[in-house]
Write a protein that binds this DNA or RNA. Sequence first.
DNA 1: TAGGCCATCTGGTCCT
DNA 2: AGGACCAGATGGCCTA
Length: 256
Amino acid sequence: MDSDTGSSCSRSSSPDLVVNDAARSFFSNKMFQTYYRENGEDNKATKSRMDDGLTAKPKARSELNRDEIQDMRLKVNSRERKRMHDLNQAMDGLREVMPYAHGPSVRKLSKISTLLLARNYILMLSSSLEEMKKLVGDVYGGSATIQSRSSALSAMNPTTPSAHLPLHPLAQSLHSLVASTPLTFQHHSTSAVAPAPHSPPSSTFLSFHSPIQGLLKDPHHLSSTYRHLPGMPCPCSLCQPLPTTTSTLQSMSMTK
DNA sequence: TAGGCCATCTGGTCCT
DNA sequence: AGGACCAGATGGCCTA
């Protein structure tokens, strides 16, 4: 039923967003042809169904002829398609910043996998940031500057880790440090030189602190897509440092 | 072939 | 009134 059959990738969830093309693609697909057939002169059933669905405003709707109703339906469909395409573009944008290899030969993450991975990735970065803050604090012996900045961060958002303030100068500097931290991500410096297919991220990562464990029943399908990337902290369970503040992370976890 | 994933259509609901 | 958002239904594609 895909209307974007002209796309190079038949499985693309985000076909090129050409709004003007939406109607044309719709007109070319099977569903529209079926729809058009069913809305022919002799099809009373479909017409009555359409009318039933549009009788919320009897007076206004009754003034619309079938062509106008059809045009309206096409406009609604087009908007919905555009909305979903925008959503998929956002999903692609999220995939791009995930520590996974990207490329035509690599099967992209499913939507649910992307969301679960993104969430756990954020949690991992948060814990890494906390770890780095402690390390920096140790290095500078509890420098007043660090302390004041840390307390400032806490004051700005006392209920959530300062990792949620990525634009803060301290957060930026710490974030840059995270990528080269020997303690936590040491083996990345070697594997990252020549990115190679990684063992499948275990379910412990994809369900890391997740209240919806088991939602991603078979994370092994990710095995062909996972790679260590240069400078990217690895979210896999093998590389996963234990959260420094489990309670904090759990408080951040989704409540649904 | 079954199951997973996806795009699309559709009607309902809520918001501006 | 029109648009955004949502969920259900449907059917296609792909993989194990």
